[in-house]
Simulated assay, not measured.
Amino acid sequence: MAERSLPNWPRGLSRVNAAAYVGVSHAIWDKMVAAGDMPKPKRFYGRTIWDKKAVDKAFDALDPENSTPFDDEIIDFAP
C-alpha cells in the first residue's frame, strides 16, 4: 500500500485549512476559535488567515481533560 502524503502546510492557513490542519470540521473550528481554544485570525488584504505557529501553540495547550466522553473511545478497524 502506498504511503499517504500529507500536504506541505503554508505558514498562513485559511479557515478550512486551519480546521483540517488540527483534524476538525470547519464548524468545530469556528466553535474552538469562539471559545478561545484556537487563536483569532489575522486579517489583511481582504483575507482572513490563521498563523500556523499560533495554531500549533494553541493545539499544544489544549487540555485533554476538557474532551467529550466520546473522545476517549478508541475504535480499532480491521485492515
Rank of each mutant, 00 (worst) to 15 (best):
W9V: 01
L13S: 06
R4L: 15
W9M: 01
F44C: 06
M32F: 10
D51N: 14
P41K: 06
D71L: 02
K53Q: 14
A19H: 05
K57S: 11
V22I: 15
A61G: 01
G36K: 05
A78G: 11
I49A: 03
R11L: 14
W50S: 00
V22Q: 05
A19K: 02
N17T: 06
W50R: 10
S25E: 10
P39T: 09
S14F: 07
K40F: 03
R11H: 09
V22T: 07
Y21K: 06
R43M: 09
H26T: 02
P79G: 13
N66A: 15
A78K: 07
V33H: 00
P64L: 13
A20H: 11
S67I: 08
D37L: 10
W9T: 00
G23K: 00
A27R: 08
R43P: 02
I74M: 05
D60I: 06
L13Q: 06
R11K: 11
A19Q: 04
S14V: 07
V24N: 03
D60R: 12
W50N: 10
L62K: 13
S25W: 03
I75C: 07
G12S: 07
K40N: 10
S67G: 10
P7I: 13
E3I: 11
D63E: 15
Y45G: 12
A27Y: 00
V55T: 04
V24T: 02
A54N: 10
P39F: 06
R4P: 04
G46K: 10
A27C: 01
L62Q: 15
R43Y: 09
D76N: 08
Y45L: 15
K53Y: 07
